[in-house]
Computed example of a mutant assay.
Amino acid sequence: MTALRPERDSGTAGDQGSSYGQPYGDSGAFGGGWYEEQYPQPLLDDETVALRIPEPPARPTVAETGAETGAETGAAGTGPVGGGRAARRKAAKRRHGRRGAPRDQSPGEEAAETAKAPLSRVEARRQARARKPGAAVIASRAIGEIFITTGVLMLLFVTYQLWWTNVRAHAQANQAASSLQDDWASGKRSPGTFEPGQGFALLHIPKLDVVVPIAEGISSKKVLDRGMVGHYAEEGLKTAMPDAKTGNFGLAGHRNTHGEPFRYINKLEPGDPIVVETQDKYFVYKMASILPVTSPSNVSVLDPVPKQSGFKGPGRYITLTTCTPEFTSKYRMIVWGKMVEERPRSKGKPDALVS
């Protein structure tokens, strides 16, 4: 061999043989420890006593060096990247792109960053115009609000007409009936003629469970809208009173709203009783005929002997008039009756009110 070898101490063959395979110690020619440091000897396998290649030293980690560079980390910052400066540049481009923006950024994050960026004056005006509603949108909103308001007002009006007017009229009619009965019970005499709006009798229709005051006149405000029925007493439509020897006692009443006392008079049949109660007497009529539809101007139905009633001569009759069809005032419905009994109050109620 051409390499230098340290001399060994002379000795016997046995001594020399015994020194083979042993590392040079402190007694070596070159001082033992220094030689081992300069020329490390291969390690021996304990089992095979064969030579073994030493393991390469571990490379320092990022935590040990305290620095993180593109050469030591990959695109995601987790693995080593080789290849020198060019490789590090490529890794940096993959991470940040051309302008330094992260390529793995989500669309939502990019939109948030874009929103944070200040807008130019032109872009701000454009966005303001885009947010401002157009004329068509404003018009549609206005029309919609009008429709909603109109619908609410109509609903309130219908509620008022169909419900509240009945509640109020029933209360007013009941008060008028109670006042009238109190006057009769106290013996207070009523004059032979009555003022417009003044109550003077009670109308009973047992089949329909109707008991309602009768007032003088057919004024909507003073009589009909207060839940009462009115006696035709105006000039040109003047009819007889129940105690007249002959004649036609004509009454008008609402069919719908304001107490609607005549709502179901179309259900009356011939023979059904209709009773008029005054301070002194009961006048009992029997339903005779009905005219389902006629013109509002057909005042002949109030004649002393109505032509379409079926009556043949003078008598003591009653006529009930109301609007038809329901919830309209286009036509009139007429119901006629003929008196069959006149009974003093001193004799008690007639059979039609007792049963």
Rank of each mutant, 00 (worst) to 15 (best):
Leu4His: 13
Ser10Trp: 08
Asp15Met: 03
Asp15Asn: 02
Gln16Lys: 11
Ser18Gln: 07
Gly25Met: 00
Gln41Asn: 05
Pro42Ile: 05
Pro42Phe: 01
Glu47Gly: 09
Leu51Ile: 06
Ile53Phe: 01
Val62Ala: 14
Val62Gln: 04
Thr65Arg: 11
Ala67Gly: 06
Ala67Thr: 13
Glu68Leu: 14
Thr69Ala: 06
Glu72Phe: 07
Thr73Tyr: 07
Ala75Phe: 01
Gly77Asp: 11
Val81Cys: 14
Gly83Asn: 09
Arg85Ala: 14
Ala86Pro: 07
Ala86Arg: 13
Ala92Gln: 13
Arg95Gln: 09
Arg95Phe: 04
Gly97Arg: 00
Pro102Lys: 11
Arg103Ser: 13
Lys116Gly: 13
Pro118Val: 03
Pro118His: 00
Leu119Cys: 02
Ser120Arg: 10
Ala124Gln: 13
Ala128Arg: 11
Ala135Gln: 12
Ala136Tyr: 00
Ala142Asn: 05
Ala142Met: 08
Ile146Leu: 15
Ile148Pro: 03
Ile148Phe: 15
Thr150Asp: 07
Thr150Arg: 02
Leu153Ser: 11
Met154Ile: 12
Met154Cys: 13
Leu155His: 02
Thr159Lys: 08
Gln161Lys: 13
Leu162Cys: 09
Trp163Gln: 08
Asn166Trp: 05
Gln172Pro: 09
Asn174Val: 09
Asn174Ile: 00
Asp182Ala: 15
Ser186Tyr: 03
Arg189Asn: 15
Ser190Pro: 14
Gly192Gln: 13
Phe194Glu: 11
Glu195Ala: 15
Glu195Asp: 15
Gln198Asp: 12
Val210Asn: 08
Val212Thr: 13
Pro213Leu: 00
Ile214Met: 08
Ile218Ala: 02
Ser219Cys: 09
Ser219Phe: 06
Met228Tyr: 11
His231Tyr: 12
Tyr232Gln: 01
Tyr232Arg: 02
Tyr232Thr: 15
Gly236Pro: 05
Thr239Phe: 06
Met241Asn: 11
Pro242Gln: 01
Pro242Met: 02
Gly253Met: 03
His254Phe: 01
His258Ile: 06
Glu260Pro: 04
Glu260Gly: 09
Phe262Val: 06
Tyr264Cys: 01
Ile265Gly: 07
Ile265Asn: 08
Ile274Asp: 08
Ile274Leu: 15
Met287Arg: 08
Ser289Leu: 00
Thr294Val: 07
Gly310Ala: 13
Ile318Gly: 03
Thr324Lys: 11
Thr324Gly: 13
Pro325Thr: 00
Phe327Ala: 06
Thr328Cys: 09
Ile334Glu: 03
Ile334Arg: 01
Ile334Tyr: 01
Val335Asn: 07
Arg345Gly: 09
Ser346Ile: 04
Lys347Ala: 15
Lys347Tyr: 11
Lys347Val: 08
Lys349Gln: 15
Pro350Arg: 05
Asp351Trp: 00
Ala352Phe: 06
Val354Leu: 13
